[in-house]
Simulated scan of single mutants.
Amino acid sequence: MKTIILLAFCALAASAYALEEADRVNGENGWYVPQLDGTFEWVDMDVAEEWMEQQELLESRGLTTVPVKFYLYTSSNPTKGKKITASTKSIDASHFNAAHPTRFVIHGWTQSYTASMNKDIRAAWLSHGDYNVIVVDWARARSVDYATSVMAVAATGKKVAKMINFLHSDHGMSLDSLYVIGHSLGAHVAGYAGKNTDGQVHTIIGLDPALPLFSYNKPNKRLSSDDAHYVESIQTNGGTLGFLKPIGKGAFYPNGGKTQPGCPLDVTGACSHGRSTTYYAEAVREDNFGTIKCHDYEAAVAKDCGSTYSSVRMGADTNAYMVAGDFYVPVNSKAPFGMIH
């Protein structure tokens, strides 16, 4: 059944009625949907949205499974994750400590909990002391077909919310110090987690939230600035794999947000897209990304925000209390990427 639906989607994508190339605007009247081989297939927005509505019906009927696993890392087990479930027996047998702040980390398409972004981000947080770092592994991210992974985002986010609710209600985890950090499709999973928690998540960090098959004008179906007390977006491949329009209450645009230095011949955008995770891990570790406040996101993209640094650092722990608006972030082409030491 699933194969037939995917073939139908591909047939629709290649429809003779698709918009002419000159008329296509990624994210506005359709999407360039990434394929596993690094190529893109154009799909008109009305065609894709009709297909997604049909898929949502199948998902809501429980005809597809959405396996989600959780791995806990702490200063007692910083490199070997302990698989945990939403049960008292499991949590009691782990190093989870409700007195310490908790960080959920969620990977994107094709990845797993062993992805380098998870290692980098958890190591960065644990370098500062005691945290519960819970890395989420969602199997549907590894669907061969990107669209199938997109359809699992909402249900995956609800499962993450279920774990958050359990840790909060049964084990005393504070929502006031909770961060949910997601990359690409994982950023939207984080958004759905925030939409479904009992009480408000403190902070969500969206690392280049995925653009293909997500509409800016449908914030209820993507990560939006209302999904937590504070939402920060670090946008590095805007207009291709990630959003260019601001997603977070604080929206940060390294190198203008479209492409990143040190990513030559980045035809698919994968290098620039992945930079968001590298920058964030470094920001947590070093707090070294100075920013320039912009009048709006267009100015950030045009790098037309002047040269006066603001007091705000991208990815800083204090941003939730003081940050709103769009920021241009100068970056280096190799590590350290942040320009303030």
Rank of each mutant, 00 (worst) to 15 (best):
residue 317 D to F: 07
residue 312 V to H: 12
residue 315 G to T: 03
residue 285 R to G: 04
residue 293 K to T: 02
residue 284 V to C: 01
residue 300 A to W: 04
residue 288 N to F: 08
residue 281 A to Q: 00
residue 286 E to D: 14
residue 293 K to S: 08
residue 280 Y to T: 11
residue 299 A to D: 13
residue 317 D to E: 14
residue 320 A to F: 07
residue 283 A to C: 09
residue 307 S to T: 10
residue 312 V to R: 07
residue 280 Y to A: 13
residue 278 T to Y: 10
residue 295 H to I: 13
residue 291 T to Y: 05
residue 310 S to P: 08
residue 313 R to C: 05
residue 312 V to Q: 11
residue 291 T to F: 05
residue 301 V to R: 05
residue 294 C to Y: 06
residue 316 A to D: 15
residue 300 A to R: 02
residue 320 A to H: 09
residue 323 V to Q: 08
residue 318 T to A: 09
residue 282 E to H: 00
residue 315 G to Q: 12
residue 291 T to G: 04
residue 324 A to T: 02
residue 310 S to Q: 09
residue 321 Y to K: 09
residue 296 D to H: 10
residue 285 R to L: 13
residue 277 T to A: 15
residue 305 C to F: 11
residue 279 Y to V: 00
residue 305 C to S: 14
residue 282 E to W: 00
residue 312 V to S: 09
residue 297 Y to V: 02
residue 319 N to V: 04
residue 314 M to N: 10
residue 302 A to K: 06
residue 293 K to A: 15
residue 287 D to Y: 07
residue 288 N to Y: 03
residue 318 T to G: 07
residue 279 Y to N: 02
residue 318 T to F: 10
residue 292 I to L: 12
residue 323 V to I: 09
residue 285 R to S: 13
residue 283 A to F: 08
residue 301 V to F: 07
residue 322 M to N: 02
residue 287 D to L: 10
residue 303 K to T: 03
residue 287 D to P: 00
residue 305 C to I: 09
residue 279 Y to F: 14
residue 311 S to Q: 15
residue 316 A to Y: 01
residue 323 V to P: 00
residue 321 Y to M: 13
residue 311 S to W: 10
residue 301 V to G: 12
residue 313 R to I: 06
residue 312 V to A: 14
residue 296 D to F: 09
residue 315 G to H: 06
residue 281 A to G: 05
residue 282 E to P: 00
residue 321 Y to F: 13
residue 306 G to K: 04
residue 312 V to E: 13
residue 312 V to P: 03
residue 308 T to D: 15
residue 282 E to F: 02
residue 313 R to S: 03
residue 320 A to W: 14
residue 294 C to F: 07
residue 279 Y to R: 05
residue 278 T to S: 13
residue 313 R to A: 13
residue 288 N to Q: 08
residue 316 A to L: 02
residue 282 E to A: 01
residue 310 S to W: 06
residue 314 M to H: 12
residue 296 D to V: 02
residue 307 S to F: 12
residue 297 Y to M: 09
residue 315 G to S: 12
residue 288 N to C: 11
residue 291 T to K: 08
residue 320 A to E: 11
residue 310 S to K: 10
residue 322 M to Y: 04
residue 286 E to R: 05
residue 316 A to K: 00
residue 300 A to K: 01
residue 319 N to A: 14
residue 292 I to H: 08
residue 278 T to A: 11
residue 324 A to P: 00
residue 277 T to R: 04
residue 295 H to F: 08
residue 286 E to W: 08
residue 299 A to N: 04
residue 315 G to L: 03
residue 278 T to D: 12
residue 291 T to E: 02
residue 281 A to W: 01
residue 297 Y to D: 15
residue 284 V to I: 12
residue 310 S to F: 07
residue 318 T to Y: 14
residue 323 V to N: 08
residue 290 G to T: 06
residue 297 Y to A: 05
residue 307 S to G: 12
residue 312 V to C: 10
residue 291 T to L: 13
residue 296 D to I: 00
